[in-house]
Write a protein that binds this DNA or RNA. Structure first.
Lengths: 253, 253
DNA sequence: CGTCTCATTGATCCGCCTCAATAGCTGTGG
DNA sequence: CCACAGCTATTGAGGCGGATCAATGAGACG
């Protein structure tokens, strides 16, 4: 797959990491990409919404660092998290009318993103075909994840939804090198997990403790998760062939 | 928005309609597009699955005529319909690994589609920018629809889900000229609607009859639907500003 | 130390599922 | 023409999973 990396993170200053855009095919292009990204870098603090000025749908976000939640709300305030965006992800909030996004993008941690205008983004993709391919891959991964989750929202039990959520997070964390084996930390509350899985935080708690009581996972210190029995969890999540894991993250090794 | 049409349907022979690809910017290009599409036309009969030979994810489907359901299944056979594809829609089943699709595509009516290889599709988009823009619009509409539905799957009641499904179908039918006002026919059983809304067919039935009893809709003859009180239904579906309607269909007038 | 957020657990309620029976409609073959 | 099978819609009765309400505990922070 042309030696493209989803993301490479290096130590750098205050926040701890610096993003290296995942296109190593051409050094010169890579440097230019770096320039464009850092020139458009914006930082958002934890729990703040990403406010896109002007024409929302004409802005593309490249996540450089931190976690974002892409969500939608009902008028009564109930929130559904559509997807998490991790470093290396690309968020395209465009809707069909080319005007509105109707998506709420929330920073779960301190975050830095590159906010690019649609035209810039189109030009970049045109000028660097590997970037175009990468963007397609990332979009396809996002689509696959959303479909998997939709399936479980519609037809799955609470156990299944939570199990799937944990496995998805584990796989994604691993893909960007943020997990050791099946141990990882997610910057989420049980409320977030509930908004993600379509459950109340109370029931997320019960479900997690149930899984822990059976020795399938352990949870400590605000979402330090350890998957003790991957096979059992995958069975509960109804995840079939291992191959499926690779559909939901771009370019998993 | 550059005078692009989502679809134009004309009378033609047995099935009644012929698809005109929605790119009128350049006549010559339009003719070539027609050629490519008809050269790759395939017909699928009702209730059959669309089997993509070889490398599934490298095939793009342009729906020329009829209804398709894009679905996913759990191992116990429970099915969730991710999206309906109507004439003029483009289905890209690719997953992140570039190999599998893991999506099941089912013909709800007799259907004709143009099945294009990914490379052909990429070339077409490159050669005809208006087509590229249109494809982006259609993809954005699909994303917006799925997000709306995901929100309601996770947080909405059965009434809300059904109300939203009906309104979405109404708007989409209108966009392709298949409805008179708020009356339209969908080639779906209550089972399909249930798989779409994450409900059992039994509960879909109860919910529809409940709405009918209140005079908000009427349903006759296997899904001849008439929305009698759009405002009430929109309230139940929790659809806010009218503008939102235009996010979920490409280039709604 | 007080406040705030988050996790945990119990008790209760209700919306939707499940099972089951009936009825209508379509097509098929006698 | 009827008889029959198969599919879909409809309606009822009962059960269960997850929501809701509520109380307590445990860190984090000023």
């Amino acid at each position: 797959m042309n030696q493209m990396h989803v993301s490479e993170l290096e130590q750098n200053g205050h926040h701890g990491v610096r993003y290296c855009f995942p296109c190593t095919v051409n050094d010169e292009a890579n440097i230019k990409l770096e320039d464009v990204l850092s020139a458009n870098e914006r930082r958002i603090r934890r729990n703040h919404l990403v406010a896109l000025e002007g024409d929302q749908s004409k802005t593309v976000l490249c996540v450089l660092n931190g976690w974002l939640a892409v969500a939608k709300c009902l008028s009564d305030g109930e929130k559904q998290i559509i997807d998490f965006a991790l470093p290396g992800d690309i968020i395209d909030p465009s809707a069909a009318d080319g005007k509105s996004s109707a998506l709420q993008i929330e920073a779960l941690t301190d975050v830095s993103v590159a906010a690019l205008s649609d035209t810039t983004w189109q030009e970049m993709k045109r000028d660097w075909p590997p970037l175009n391919r990468l963007a397609s891959q990332i979009a396809a991964a996002s689509r696959a994840r959303r479909a998997e989750r939709m399936l479980r929202l519609g037809k799955g039990s609470a156990r299944m939804r939570v199990a799937y959520a944990l496995l998805e997070l584990c796989v994604r964390m691993r893909a960007i090198g943020h997990s050791e084996g099946c141990n990882f930390h997610v910057p989420l509350t049980q409320q977030h997990l509930g908004d993600f899985a379509g459950l109340t935080s109370v029931h997320v708690c019960r479900t997690l403790r149930g899984l822990a009581r059976q020795g399938i996972i352990s949870v400590e210190d605000h979402m330090d998760i350890r998957i003790l029995d991957v096979a059992a969890l995958a069975e509960i999540a109804d995840i079939g062939p291992e191959a499926l894991w690779q559909e939901i993250v771009p370019a998993a090794a």
